[in-house]
């Protein structure tokens, strides 16, 4: 029950964050050609208002799934590497169709490869930073244990 509640909470937060981040990124990427809340090709395809609604909602869905999927990191049955891989697969299966539909990748193979490459780099960095934070904590615990055990001798 707690896991379901956690999942709903994470997904809800992810939906809001996804909408905000998605819109900010599109604004940033289209800034050179005049600020827009959706990719120009998407606007051409659906018209301005539906394109902006689609862009915002699908960014929310992406955030919802990616943030909700972080629940795997709280599951004891998966180690850190497994949790990172599961999250990466879920994120890619969501990101690739959405980013193609919203014209983020230009609907070309090169665009998808760039997104995949950037995603893999991001996940390697996430895994490494989390791994190092645990490693440092464990090193400190082992030092404390050594001090305790030598004090008892």
């Amino acid at each position: 029950m707690t896991a379901i509640k956690d999942l709903i909470r994470l997904a809800a937060v992810g939906f809001v964050l996804g909408m905000i981040i998605g819109d900010i990124m599109v604004v940033a990427f289209t800034a050179s050609e005049g600020i827009s809340l959706a990719a120009p090709e998407l606007i051409e395809e659906f018209g301005y208002v539906p394109a902006v609604i689609l862009q915002t909602l699908l960014s929310g869905v992406l955030g919802c799934i990616c943030f909700g999927a972080t629940i795997v990191y709280y599951k004891d049955e998966y180690n850190l590497l497994e949790a990172t891989c599961i999250h990466m697969v879920i994120a890619f299966f969501t990101l690739i169709p959405i980013s193609n539909f919203l014209w983020w990748t230009g609907r070309v193979m090169e665009g998808n490869i760039v997104v995949l490459a950037m995603g893999i780099c991001a996940y390697v960095m996430i895994w490494f930073s989390v791994y190092m934070s645990y490693r440092i904590q464990i090193q400190k615990i082992n030092e404390a244990l050594e001090r305790r055990n030598s004090g008892k001798k």
Partner: peptide
């Protein structure tokens, strides 16, 4: 009774 902790590359403690 703890001797030590260990973290492997997969992130299992």
């Amino acid at each position: 009774k703890i001797i030590r902790l260990d973290l492997n590359l997969a992130g299992t403690i």
